[in-house]
Design a protein around this nucleic acid. Sequence first.
DNA 1: AATGATATCTGACTAAAGTCAGACATATGC
DNA 2: GCATATGTCTGACTTTAGTCAGATATCATT
Lengths: 290, 290
Amino acid sequence: MLDPVSRIRRFNRAVTSAVGALDTSFLGRGRPLGAARVLNAIGHGRTDVGDIRDYLALDSGLMSRLLRSLEDEGLIETTAHGDDARRRIARLTPAGRREFNAYEAISNRQAKDFLSHHTQREALLAAMDLIASALGRDGAVLDEIDPRSDEARYCLGEYYAELARRFKQGFDVKLSRDPDAKDMVRPRGSFIVAMSDGLPLGCVGLKGASGEFAEIKRLWVAPAARGLGLGRRLMDAAEKAARELGIAVLRLDTNSALAEAGQLYRRSGWTEIPRFNDDPYPDLFFEKRL
Amino acid sequence: MLDPVSRIRRFNRAVTSAVGALDTSFLGRGRPLGAARVLNAIGHGRTDVGDIRDYLALDSGLMSRLLRSLEDEGLIETTAHGDDARRRIARLTPAGRREFNAYEAISNRQAKDFLSHHTQREALLAAMDLIASALGRDGAVLDEIDPRSDEARYCLGEYYAELARRFKQGFDVKLSRDPDAKDMVRPRGSFIVAMSDGLPLGCVGLKGASGEFAEIKRLWVAPAARGLGLGRRLMDAAEKAARELGIAVLRLDTNSALAEAGQLYRRSGWTEIPRFNDDPYPDLFFEKRL
DNA sequence: AATGATATCTGACTAAAGTCAGACATATGC
DNA sequence: GCATATGTCTGACTTTAGTCAGATATCATT
């Protein structure tokens, strides 16, 4: 009764019926599920017909007919792609936008209903994040963004909060050598986030232009996404950016309380070096030559 | 990006594609999904045709045809129900059992694959338990069982472990007034577990025959299932059993460290009374007249 | 300009799922 | 015993999903 496989299968059964309920409620708008799925994909910003076809795993003939039926209903318009007239772009008409909003409202209401019936909301949401990340393990996309953007600031906030929890003496950004955002933007450096379906799951900063070496800063992975190799991917991406910027030597500082991070560095070709700055928080220092 | 509704919807999307993958793998056995679902329902112990129809939400005509096709394949047999000859009972033939096992193997393999790709297994399983319980909130079934059965012993083990965590001074069953199992079996008392799809989610004991009152003991709800009103349901079931056994006065002892429990008692008609035993652990005592 | 690759569309299918009215046998209440 | 309700089955549909072989237009390369 405790065996992991039956626990997973119990989860599968519970979730299958929940998904079925959502599908059924979508039928309430008098449109087959296939057409509703295409409309929703377009509404969520997928405009390229081929892209939608891949995403929904549809046959090209079926896709074409579904598009036609939505067009006949006056919900979408299709135009040729500017660069390549073979490709088609689908867009919602105002009527289509209204219909899409109605589907959104159904989904949102279901989500709210679910939440409102439960007291331990944060635990439930954390569990959902964890599972969504685990299921969509290949789903996280790495993006280079501005370290002052909302997504980046969210990641940094979580990162600082975690340091505060894990360091015995707490953590105060002001006491640490906080890198200037401009040093983490090309051409001097870079800032990379891992996004999964709108949720930031991790980040890393490459702080360049401070002499003979550049630094890796602010490597963070959301608790929900640990154990999926995201830290590795972020580090690889940061190294790649460093190479592109012509950086030859990378350094970083960390704290021995962050054991997973230390392991990751050692396993990916970093070597420990003596202290190279006077920041009060780190007690471990690494270098890697590219 | 942090709003609860989008987090739930991200979870929905992740899970929808996972469910789709399981469905697709079921098609590998050359049978349409509808027939496979019926076969699996029968294999999992649903034998009553009407019950299967409700569970899978099938039209009676469709259901009948699916049964016929499984019968033609030699996988099931149907017979009339003993009490009511209108109702039909479906059972697997040996060939059907083999085919069902093949589907089971597919599900089990998928579950194992999923686990083997992740490092934080316990966290993942705990999250799945939590969500499965939350989604299947009406799914928990209360059963009266022997307090020496595996399910009961599992619940009690979890209960003791939780007390040990929550009491400052720890918890040792041997120091407490551990009720004799025979006092929690009819006709003297009762022991009730809440089972959800094979997983015990909670328990409560009714210890009778010790004089002018009976006692409620060992009320426990699994962390994954808290906030769903299961404690209330268990207490109601225990009171019902007490009434059936002709018990007029119920008492219980608890500890103020278990705040939720105290709240539950107060909200369901129990009144605080002076200490009525010398057990070292409890510091709060309640009574309820039926 | 010719060739081959690519993106989409059309026509002609099949399979699966779902619907509905009515038939039939059996149960239940008076 | 009779009327009514219930559970299952059959026949005759419709709708949705999915498949496949070309047709057509466009792009990239030589």
